[in-house]
Design a protein around this nucleic acid. Structure first.
Lengths: 211, 211
DNA sequence: ACGGCAATTGAACACACGTTTAAACTCCTG
DNA sequence: CAGGAGTTTAAACGTGTGTTCAATTGCCGT
């Protein structure tokens, strides 16, 4: 995110990602222009409108995250994707932007979460084959639940303990420190001592997964 | 939320809860005034400012939710509080408002979640005593994780499948249908087959709970 | 070197917002 | 019945917004 040798258009895009991520999508065009060291009119000249600028940011963020995933990141744990990204200083603004995107809803959030769920389902299936993960009655639903619960917990934690100076890495480490033990505890030992709740729900809704 | 025999001030407050819940806190004073059948100036006359109006809504929503909890609601499952509230037509706007409040962050969200976490810890402790819930190395952290994960999943689900015509009850039922099986599965059978992940994390951070 | 084209700017526009103000209305009290 | 306090409204104000426009700058090819 260095201001070096970038197209003006790219500098404006990066500034927009920065401000949207820090202030939400109500951030003004003028504040973005200031951050980019540019006049407000030029922002519109390059992107047409604020909405189009946001759409361009959405697309760019999604593309960079997709690329980064195939690169250096350790695979295997889908729910830590954002945590790993936040640790790389260059990617921190993308994490902040993605968080705002999920808080605001819209196509970006849908696309990101759908991909995350699909990835998680793959990781879980690999684990099942390797014998480290228990099989599920409905692997797709389990992957969806795990992603929604863990990403959702991240969103709430960010709202309860907002990053100072945009330091998402510290906030996410804080979340990990708070939730790793209870999460691992539940994942390895369970929460309930008997099967009555599960069994009674299964006879109530006995539908098998439909794919 | 009927428009009958209420103080004008109360009618404006209810209209504000309705519009804030439906459109977020960017909802305009004018739209609230229209919904209440009143002029914009009167809204400010009664509450002083838009921020003060929101503060009054925060306080009122929190108070009503606290009262309703001691009443007819089935105790025992803290994470279903919002689901049970959404099923009562009268309370649906409060649920929508609360969702927006958590998405926006702020004191309302902190107060609500803190209370929810405290309640969950109580329910879990009761379950542990009764032998239906497994004990935890850190009961407070477990309660916090469970609330953040389940409420967070609710927030994300609402953003992915927005309620039509404010029908939060249907959206939440949809979420339950999608996540009940995987959640119960994980809670009774666990997710991992061996203890290596948990044990290795415990030696890495062997701190016992500090209270 | 110069004409042309894209980049860029500063000023302005139209609009929506929260809020203010003065006047009208309502209703209870003396 | 008079009057005053509280309620309510319509209109206006000031500000910030996204966007437009004409003018200026800077660069590149011929």
């Amino acid at each position: 995110m260095a201001a070096a040798d970038l197209t003006t258009r790219a500098r404006i895009r990066d500034a927009a990602i920065h401000r949207f991520g820090a202030d939400g999508f109500a951030a003004s065009v003028r504040s973005i222009a200031t951050q980019a060291g540019v006049s407000p009119g030029l922002v519109i000249h390059h992107f047409g409108s604020k909405d189009a600028l946001r759409a361009a940011c959405d697309e760019y963020v999604l593309q960079v995250i997709r690329e980064s995933k195939s690169r250096a990141l350790t695979p295997g744990s889908a729910s830590d994707l954002l945590a790993q990204l936040a640790d790389v200083e260059e990617y921190t603004p993308l994490v902040a932007y993605m968080v705002q995107g999920m808080l605001a809803g819209g196509d970006l959030a849908v696309a990101f979460l759908d991909q995350m769920i699909a990835d998680a389902e793959g990781y879980l299936a690999t684990g099942v084959e390797a014998g480290t993960v228990r099989p599920s009655r409905d692997p797709a639903a389990r992957a969806r639940y795990l992603v929604l619960a863990n990403v959702g917990a991240l969103l709430l934690h960010v709202r309860l303990h907002p990053p100072v100076d945009g330091d998402y890495a510290a906030t996410i480490r804080e979340l990990t420190a708070l939730t790793a033990v209870p999460a691992l505890e539940i994942f390895t030992e369970g929460l309930l001592t008997d099967r009555t709740m599960l069994d009674s729900y299964l006879v109530y809704v006995p539908d098998p997964p439909r794919r």
